[in-house]
Structure formats: structure tokens, C-alpha cells
Write a protein that binds this DNA or RNA. Structure first.
Lengths: 369, 369
DNA sequence: CGATTAAGGGTAATCGATTACCCTCGTCAA
DNA sequence: TTGACGAGGGTAATCGATTACCCTTAATCG
């Protein structure tokens, strides 16, 4: 076995750095000041019932205050074999959709006294694996997979019943797993209905590779509904964009869309794709949405200002955080244990007339299954 | 002293939940399997020189592999009084600027084997204080303040020499502190030069309240340069937007900008503000940038697609992560200790002709001072 | 009145790493 | 030949919390 090239694990090349330390009070000192044992301090802090009299409790809290004591997370985690950290693995913070959902999750976690570790995985299975291992080493309270891809460690995590919650995209493996998202099938079908009702008898579809359940649901449901309404032979050409969505969509639009015979309706499976397509359409002098109706997916709040010509399906960003917290709770709380695996959030269809948009609540709201 | 209302600190209302545990191997088991002491295992793992023969090293690494051992972060942190976590406190992930910089920081940290805890503070001093305390309890490796506001705990952290790095906005207190950002003074002055060169003899300024050094630098430098070029009596009306930037800018633009006598040039201290202003301009039928030249600040990559009419100062997002890591290193690495407090990154001026943009490198590049 | 039981609180084990300190060999120079 | 020194490695203390277990006291119940 060849020796490994001694990759140093230490930070910045030196061991035991001159660590700027803030010597903070320990539970020991609090106990001494309050005149009780550390056990009692711990119990007071953690509100263990029937383990401290009112008087003791107050003495302890006074000492905590006086020393501005903060329990060491490391000590606690070591003993409990569990930290109060929740890992969020997202493909890319540069994508507004992921950033907004991460923000919502962070707020909801904070209200539970949890903190969020956030990692960009770039949809790379190796990176995802590395971060999943990191989460295991941190003994996290939960792991939120925002856009999971298939990877060995994910499979392993599912087997060992790790507290995983899949957001938006479902678990890539066919096993029962907790999930939070909107009903993409219903949403895409409503988009098809809308386009048909506006006298469109066909549409182009720009979509990402069908690796994720979200993309698949959107595309197939759109096709099914459209063909149900307009006949099985209605034109629904598909164009598949690659990873760098905006740019790729723009390039592909340049190749396929001309000013003379543009498609009258385009369905994009994300807003990002729509931005690329629309950019080209505007550059060749088409008016949106008069000449071409473009539908996106996600509902970036910025659209109202920057893309008022875009119709889209708006995700309820602000609801993701609470829903994720609820799903995580099911791993721990007896009461929540029977909660259904899927949490389906309501979406809105946002229709554009070019300058302004109108919101339409979905025909059905949120539901669980 | 009245009894506190026993706010439970436990998660989800119950103690000792049915914790889905993945029993992971400990250093003890690795040592046993390799036939050495835990001390040796630790030394091999941490690459302590001259503490293990090649043969021993290989036996240990083989055992590590066999048990797929991962060192417990809690155990390590407890002993070393320092975790490998870096806290990033950002105002709002919904803002693309903050999201992109956070993403860049995360990538750079990961390459050092560090992980990022991210928290939205919403520029709220109380929230910022709560998170600063949380970081202390986590004994973080460093704290990145992306848009800091004044708060007691921040002051305290500065006094105790906590490893703080301020990004974009400088430290709100007048003490020496590490900082990473662009030269806002230079950038704003170049914008003024550009507008003057395009025959503008005045400009409106939309800016956020001047709480942060970034806003102040941008506004005052722009004013100074413009007056230097166009005379002290050139018209430079200021309009101050409030917290919800896009909306507020839009409302204020509605109040002040009419189609009959629009300003010919508008300088906005962030892209977000520019979006709001531009939205109104487009709604009242003005052409951008033919009728009105709008300058933003930050350079959201989305602009190329959604706001090609916007000229802006582009921040080098991808450079923030490495720069922040370098600044953090100065707290630990002897070699980096003499690194200057300020890391100034280069910016680009992006000029719009309506449909396309051209990049202009700044007259001076990055520098340190 | 004796037996239970609940409340209040202390003792010490425990979690999993790192590291100060000590020990044993060789090697090598004086 | 001796002493110093470096390499290699073990022992046990230590970090800061939580919690199993035990003890005392007072109240309650039949």
C-alpha cells in the first residue's frame, strides 16, 4: 500500500495557532457561584421539571446572568451524540430559488433554536457525498437536501434512517422519504390549461435534463394535459438545456427561434431558463407577451420588476421553512411521527399581460398525502 | 425576582427524543483494530510529524478505511476549544448580492476543510447579537459580518479580539478591524466621471439610509467628483429609500419622476434600488438608457439577461471567498499575521447601450492598504 | 402509623477527541 | 564510552456538558 501524500489536515499549515480565545464561563463556575452542583445548573438551564425549587432556579439564573454564561455546544453535542445543527445541501446559492428557500429554512430553524450549516453541492455527487459525511461527523439534527442527486452516501444515509428531508426535488431513490414541495404535476397541468384557453394549440418546451422528479413532473404533466386538450398530435417540441441554465437556454433559443416563425407559446421548467429564452426573443425584436407567451416556473420575486412579461408558477418561499421544520420534527417528536411523508405546499399561477401580473390561487390549495 | 415563564429550551417539546442514531466508529475502535493507542491514531489522522512510522501509519489508515471512521467534530472541538465552523451573518439571502457572496465564501471555506453556518440577521441588532452569542457558544473558527450593524455584542467581540472579518461594509465602530470589499470611493468617482463625459451635468441620487460605510462612500464620493467636474452648483438631488429597497425605490420614483421632465441620469447605490426606479421609468414609457441613464451598484449577473439597460459597478463575487479565507487566516497563521487589515478587490464598470453591456476594468486594480 | 411516592438535589460516569508527559531505542558526536 | 537527541509510541488528564443512580425529606394514603 503506497503511503498517502501526507495531505495536511491542519488549517493554514500550522498546528495550534495563536487562537484568539475568549475565555467563557463554564457550567462549573456557574454552579460554584450559585452554590449548587453542575447537575442542578444543567437541569435549570434545560428546564427539567421537578428538579429544582423556585429559589434554586432563580439563584442559578442569576449566576448565569452574572457570568453571561453560554452552554458550550461542543460539550452538549458530545454527550448527547447530537448537535443542534441542521445541514442544508443546495446546488447553488447563486440561484435565487435556492437562496430564497435556504433563507426561509434558516429563519424557521432559528426559531427552534437550531442553526443552519449551508453547503453548495453544485449537483456534484462527490461533493454531496463529502458534505453528507461532514454532516455525519457533526452529528447534525437533520439534513435538508435541496436538489439531491444520486450518490452512495445518500443511499447509505437513507438506509441508516438519517433525518433527511428532501425539498422541491424528491428523493432520487425509490424508498420512502420525507419531502416538501409543491404539486408540480398539478401546476404544470394548470399551465397547459391556461395556454390552451388562450388559443394556443401547441407550445415549445425548454427544460433541464430530466434527472429530477421536479423536472420530470413538470414536463410530462404539461405534455399529458396539453395533448388531452389539443389532441395527441399537437406540436410540443422539446429543447433540453444543460447545466448553466440561463446561458444554455439563450444559446439554444438563438439556434431555434427566428423572428419570422417564432413559437407562439413557450413553457420553461424554471424561470432561469425563461430568462435565457426571453433574452433572445427580445433581441430579435419580438414583443413579450404579445408575440410570444413565455411561462416560467418558480416565481422569482424579482420578476415583478425585471420580468413583467413572464408568466410563472410561484413557489411559496416563505412556507418552506416551517414545512421543513415540521418534517424534521417527525423524526423526533412522538406527536409528529405519524405526519405524512409528503408535505405539499400551495402555489400561485402568475399571469402576465406585459406590464403587470395578476395572481391566481391554485385550484386546490396545499394538501398532504 | 419574578419567576421566568419557563420557556422550554428543548426541541419540539420533548426531551430525549427517539433520536435516529447512526452508531459511528470512534477513535477507540480504530485504535483497537490497528493495534495502537488512540494517541497514535490521532497523530496519524492529524499528520503530526515524527510521531508514527510508515508501517504504523498505514495500519492506522487501513483501519480508518475499514471502519469508515470520521472523527467526531464535537470531541475535537471540546478539547481544542475551537470548532471548524465559520459563521456568516448576512442581512438577507433574498438579496442576490448577499447570496452570491455567501456562496463564494462557502466554497472557499470548504476548500480549507471549514464549514459555513449562515444566518440572516435582517440588519436587526438584536438578531445580530443573538447570532453572535450563538457563534461564541459554537466556538467558531471565525465570524464573517456581511453587512454589520452596531450592536453591543459586536462591540464586545471586537474588544475580546474575536476573529471577525467585515465584508463589503466596514466595521461600524471606529476600531481597527479586518475588512474585505471593493473601493467604493473610487468606483463611485468613476461613475461620476462617466456620466459627466456623457454630457450629463447633473444626476439624481437614489440611496439607502447612510448607515453603512458602503452607502456613505458611494454617495459622498459620487457627489464630490461630480461637483469637481461640473461645478459645485450642479443639481444632485438625493432621494432616500427605506429598507424594502425595490418597493421603496419604486414608490419614490412614482412620486418624483414624471414622463414630461425626467432626470437624464440616475445614480442608485445598489442594483436593487435601480430595479425599482427603472420599473417606474419603463411604466411611464421612458426608454432606457436613451431617455434616462441609470447606474446601479453590485452588478448582479442576472442583469445581462434581465436588465441590459442598466449600467453598474460589478463586484467580483468569486474573489470574496478566497479573500475572506485569507483574512481569517491572519488570525491564526504566523505568516499571514502581518497581512494588511483591508483587502480591496477590483471592480468592473459595466456600461449599457440598451441591448448589450461592455465591461471596463477599473483604472486601478485591487490593492491593499 | 407505616408505606409510598414525589420533589429536590448531589455524585460520578460518560461522550470522543487531543495532547502533556513519560518512556524506550538507536545513532552519533565528543 | 557516554551523553544528547530524535524518532516512535503509550498513559492518562482534559475539555464541558448531560444524566443514571442514589439519597433525603415531606406529603399523602389506606
Amino acid at each position: 500500500m503506497p503511503s498517502k501524500p501526507a495531505k495536511p489536515r491542519t488549517m493554514f499549515g500550522i498546528r495550534d495557532p495563536k487562537a484568539p480565545q475568549t475565555p467563557t464561563a463554564s457550567i462549573e463556575e456557574v454552579a460554584r457561584l450559585a452554590g449548587v452542583s453542575t447537575a442542578t445548573v444543567s437541569r435549570v438551564i434545560n428546564n427539567v421539571p421537578n428538579k429544582a425549587s423556585q429559589a434554586t432556579r432563580e439563584r442559578v439564573l442569576r449566576a448565569v446572568e452574572a457570568l453571561s454564561y453560554l452552554p458550550s455546544r461542543a460539550g452538549r453535542a458530545l454527550r448527547q451524540k447530537r448537535s443542534h445543527i441542521v445541514g442544508v445541501l443546495a446546488p447553488d446559492l447563486g440561484n435565487a430559488y435556492h437562496a430564497l428557500i435556504s433563507g426561509s429554512i434558516e429563519r424557521a430553524l432559528r426559531e427552534q433554536g437550531l442553526v443552519m450549516v449551508l453547503a453548495n453541492t453544485g449537483e456534484d455527487p462527490d461533493l454531496q457525498d463529502a458534505m453528507l459525511q461532514e454532516m455525519r461527523a457533526l452529528q447534525v439534527f437533520g439534513i435538508v437536501m435541496l436538489g439531491a442527486v444520486e450518490s452512495p452516501e445518500l443511499q447509505h444515509g437513507l438506509k441508516s434512517n438519517e433525518p433527511l428531508v428532501f425539498v422541491n426535488r424528491r428523493c432520487p431513490y425509490d424508498v420512502p422519504a420525507r419531502h416538501v414541495g409543491i404539486d408540480n404535476v398539478l401546476a404544470a397541468s394548470e399551465v397547459a390549461e391556461y395556454l390552451f384557453a388562450r388559443h394556443h394549440r401547441g407550445a415549445w418546451i425548454f427544460h433541464a435534463p430530466l434527472k429530477s422528479s421536479a423536472s420530470r413532473d413538470r414536463v410530462t404533466s404539461f405534455q399529458r394535459k396539453f395533448q388531452e386538450l389539443a389532441g395527441a398530435d399537437c406540436p410540443l417540441p422539446e429543447i433540453v438545456v444543460s447545466t448553466r441554465r440561463r446561458d444554455s437556454a439563450y444559446q439554444l433559443a438563438r439556434q431555434h427561434i427566428s423572428a419570422e416563425t417564432p413559437p407562439r407559446a413557450i413553457f420553461c421548467t424554471t424561470d432561469e431558463i425563461a430568462y435565457g429564452v426571453a433574452r433572445h426573443c427580445l433581441e430579435i425584436g419580438l414583443s413579450l407577451p404579445q408575440d410570444v407567451t413565455i411561462f416560467g416556473f418558480d416565481g422569482n420575486p424579482m420578476n415583478e420588476f425585471l420580468a413583467p412579461w413572464l408568466s410563472t408558477v410561484r413557489s411559496p418561499y416563505e412556507l418552506f421553512g416551517p414545512a421543513v421544520v415540521g418534517a424534521l420534527g417527525a423524526f423526533y417528536d412522538e406527536g409528529e411521527a405519524s405526519r405524512p411523508l409528503d408535505t405539499i405546499l400551495p402555489f400561485e399561477i402568475i399571469l402576465s399581460n406585459g406590464l403587470h401580473t395578476t395572481r391566481t390561487s391554485s385550484t386546490t390549495g396545499a394538501y398532504v398525502k
